[in-house]
Nucleic acid binder design. Structure first.
Length: 474
RNA sequence: GGCGGCAUAGCCAAGCGGUAAGGCAGAGGACUGCAAAUCCUUUAUCCCCCGGUUCGAAUCCGGGUGCCGCCUCCA
């Protein structure tokens, strides 16, 4: 049985699906007016790992991840954005909708590169405004709203259990002491939040509503879309730690008040990723994207592996040094599984692996303890298990880890070491062959000089007894 | 001011009451013309500090110190 740490009850609880065998999962997805950064990706990796673990536990997940393509994309913010990509798009006369489309595409591309299992539905906020209006109307009927002049607010004192999720205490937050006239002037108390806002002049995204032409508040997005695709009650809600308050607290308050249901049974939050001990921010120039990592020689799979070396609730401090260590570790694992996986002579699931299998399973089912599971993988890699056993294990485990442990059948091309011409440019291959001849003839000084040249070209020379040397990218 | 998280070897990181997983780096060995790669072995008498509970604590309690986050858009 899979157990997960639930933010509301603050302890690990066994997953007990509302519908037998089916697990409904909702994840707060990206806001598509910029590229997602590696911190966002760590959060989405939690969803991916969760979905894979649900399958591993023999259940079928149904995953919904929203795309926020208009909610808090304020027209004003668009106009004065410092983001170069947006600024350039605006300069070219692109609409907010076109910009959102572009970054949505970029998001899906990153998901593929990270080897995320696709969600079943990716609802766009802009396509669900009628559903949001319906939620707001229901809240109005329940007497949990107030407002005037095109604005509608949610009265948090009408929500049962407000604060259970985040520990927020009414009147105790810093917002209580802050007064932003333009935002707070119509609110009775700082914790109340907008369900509907009047459109400012020139706003591209706006809709007709019972309260006038305008646009929906941010928190109502998730309440409406989760409700539409998963119903008033579902199993797991996933999101980044920063969304705990106010976004999740408010989504929950609204949904529970509107439907009378409990909304999500479990709330799972991903701890943040920082860079060099600081929160990522534009001003510090440390908001890395997957492309930034690749430009520095870090493959998306290397980053995925690196994330898995930490538990999802442990804050991560991203450093190039630690990422490099993970890159090497993954490369070694792959080599071991590839090389030995090819040794298999008999088909089947292998034997003698019961113990590691059990411990891997236990780790994953215990609140998705990926680092513990990876330790088991490393043990197996050093265990001396026969090829067919390693092959079976790699296949099973990679369903959960998704880090590309090769599953090479005997005779499979992946079971054979790559030939020089397959990994290196022709000139480098020529150097390697020339060096082989020098060595055979005992001209070691020349051979060593050639090795140095090959190194400079970015390749390691892997000598093999009686066979041509292999080349490997450094 | 309110709420929360984290402090474990040179670095990253599990463990959360029973006597310190795993990875990277380092050291020794095998292999090699020498290397690299690979393989084998090895590397924390101790888990930020001070008290306490317990037969027993990195793990629980109390008090410190340091770092970080949320409370405003934020994964």
């Amino acid at each position: 049985m899979l157990s997960l740490y639930d933010t509301v009850s603050r302890k690990k609880v066994p997953l007990d699906p509302l519908r037998p065998g089916r697990v409904g999962v909702y994840t707060c997805g990206p806001t598509v007016y910029r590229y997602v950064h590696i911190g966002n990706l760590r959060t989405y990796l939690l969803t991916d790992l969760l979905l894979r673990a649900v399958r591993f536990a023999g259940l079928t997940p149904f995953s919904v991840q929203n795309i926020t393509d208009m909610g808090h994309m304020h027209q004003e913010a668009l106009e004065r954005t410092e983001d170069k990509v947006i600024a350039a798009a605006r300069a070219m006369g692109k609409t907010a909708r076109e910009i959102a489309e572009f970054f949505t595409g970029a998001f899906f591309r990153d998901c593929r590169r990270m080897n995320f299992l696709p969600s079943d539905v990716y609802p766009r906020a802009s396509a669900h405004v009628p559903e949001m209006i319906a939620v707001a109307e229901e809240l109005e009927r329940k007497g949990a709203t107030y407002g005037e002049g095109g604005y509608l607010y949610f009265d948090v004192t009408k929500a049962k259990g407000y604060g259970e999720l985040s520990g927020a205490i009414l009147g105790k937050g810093e917002a209580a002491g802050r007064t932003d006239g333009s935002i707070h002037r119509r609110k009775r108390r700082p914790e109340d939040f907008s369900l509907w806002l009047a459109a400012e002049p020139g706003r591209e995204f706006c809709w007709e509503s019972p309260w006038g032409v305008g646009w929906p508040g941010w928190h109502i997005e998730c309440a409406a879309m989760a409700g539409k695709y998963l119903g008033p009650e579902f199993d797991i809600h996933v999101g980044g730690a920063d969304l705990r308050f106010p976004h999740h607290e408010n989504s929950r308050a609204m949904a529970m008040t509107a439907t009378g249901g409990r909304f999500a049974s479990l709330w799972v939050h991903a701890a943040h990723l920082q860079v060099d001990g600081r929160k990522m921010s534009k001003s510090l120039k440390n908001e890395y994207t997957l492309d930034d990592l690749e430009a520095r020689g870090v493959d998306p799979m290397d980053f995925r592996y690196h994330c898995l070396t930490l538990h999802y609730r442990t804050p991560m401090n991203f450093t190039w040094e630690a990422q490099a260590a993970s890159r090497k570790a993954l490369a070694r694992l792959r080599e071991v599984f590839a090389a030995r996986g090819g040794e298999g002579i008999s088909p089947g699931t292998g034997s003698g692996a019961g113990e590691v299998r059990r411990r891997f399973r236990e780790a994953i089912l215990d609140d998705l303890n990926a680092p513990k599971a990876l330790a088991v993988v490393h043990e197996a890699a050093r265990s001396g298990f026969p090829g067919d056993t390693l092959q079976a294990l790699a296949g099973e485990w990679d369903e959960v880890l998704g880090i590309g442990l090769p599953v090479a059948a005997p005779g499979d091309a992946r079971a054979e070491p790559a030939r020089p011409e397959e990994v290196a440019p022709g000139e480098v291959g020529d150097l390697a062959r020339l060096r082989d001849r020098c060595r055979r003839e005992g001209r070691y000084a020349e051979a060593d000089a050639l090795r140095e040249k090959i190194r400079e070209a970015g390749y390691d020379v892997l000598d093999r007894k009686g066979k041509p040397a292999r080349l490997k990218r450094i």
